[in-house]
Simulated scan of single mutants.
Amino acid sequence: MSAPTDPPAATAPAEADRRGMVRLGRVLGVPVDLSWTWSVIALVIVAMFGPQVHVLFPGLGWGAYGVAFLYAVLLLLSVLVHELAHAASARLFGWPTTRIVLNLWGGHTQFGSFQASPGRSLVTALSGPAANVVLALGGQLLLATAAPGGVAGLLLGIFTYANWLVAAFNALPGLPLDGGRIVESAVWALTGNQDRGTIAAGWAGRGIVVALVAAVVVVPWLQGHRPDIPMILILVMVGYFLWAGASESIRGGRLRLRVPDLAAARLMRPAVGLPADATVADVLARPAGTLVVLVSPAGVPEAVVDEDALAAVPAQDARAVPAAAAARALPAGAVVRAGDAGRPLVDRLAAVDGAEYAVLAPDGTVCGVLRQPDVVEWLTTGRRR
């Protein structure tokens, strides 16, 4: 159970992302995938509640565990409605929904690229808990008016309780929960920067984990109560999900905050361009501390000389061995300008499947090499390698 992906979100998932998934079909035009991890929570629910159902209805025998399995199915349906509410509200704002995934942690809705605002983000996030409140109120109404008995009454009560639980849990004000968008949108509106809001909401999510640990473990321990092992196991699962999601939100927010300061000229390693038919001896004559990019007769960077391979060439063979023999080929289009920076630079790097790029000066000559690890290091830590 989670809020929509932080805009701009990931694009449509590759086929590899569907490994371990079962396509349940489409609802409101949105593909719905069920992860194998859902079976874990289903087994936990059956193991926990099967014996309780057997006590209530001893005549069911092993069927009591089938009823407990229906608990898991009703929870799954509640989560599906929750995620469909996200998708439906996003559609009102023209945000493309790529799929809904139901898994161990509940589920999440994936979106394509879209332009958000604090208000729209908040509305889309809170539509999920709102849908569960509607379902819970409907269940309460049926319980009060129809008053079904037996297994039907038990399942209706569980369905009502599950929706109250899903709504309340997701409304907690911290990412990755839907209520985290309250914090994010408030900080976003105050600062004009969504990423600062995301970071603040991520820290709020971590605070929720600390509060849950205090409520479930610390307070009972101080009161002299024995540990509730099943509750602690649930806390471990939920706490891991929340802490990991909150940490990812913080990391992603910090990364996006650094994007505007990303600049090819700042992160490139100095380099010179040499003709593609240059020899190892020509490379060795380059200015100290610079890399070498081999350039075609048409002026297109083609390869970067590998320093380790260069050192392996015997000195007596330097004039005879072509530099291309000690070079790594550049993918087509692996070229950026020294003035490229910010989001356009990120988009340019993402458009080329490579790990290094030739950097061109304003006059079109090679002036550096930009390496993907250097970019990642800058975006993740704010430091140069």
Rank of each mutant, 00 (worst) to 15 (best):
A14N: 12
E15N: 07
A16G: 13
A16S: 15
D17G: 04
D17P: 03
R18Y: 11
R19H: 09
V22F: 13
R23Q: 10
R26K: 13
L28M: 14
G29V: 10
V30D: 09
P31G: 02
V32M: 04
D33R: 02
L34I: 11
W36P: 05
T37F: 00
T37P: 02
T37V: 03
I41R: 01
I41Y: 00
V44T: 09
I45K: 00
V46H: 13
V46M: 13
A47S: 14
F49M: 06
F49K: 01
Q52V: 09
V53C: 11
V53P: 04
H54V: 11
F57A: 04
F57D: 11
P58I: 06
P58Q: 04
P58D: 05
G59Y: 00
G59A: 00
G61F: 10
W62N: 08
G66M: 08
V67E: 00
A68G: 14
A68C: 11
F69L: 15
Y71I: 00
Y71G: 05
V73H: 01
V73A: 14
L75Q: 07
L75W: 07
L76P: 09
L76I: 03
L77Q: 06
L77K: 00
S78E: 00
V79F: 08
V81E: 12
V81N: 06
L84G: 09
A85L: 11
A85M: 10
A85H: 08
A87H: 07
A88P: 03
S89M: 12
S89E: 09
A90Y: 07
A90K: 05
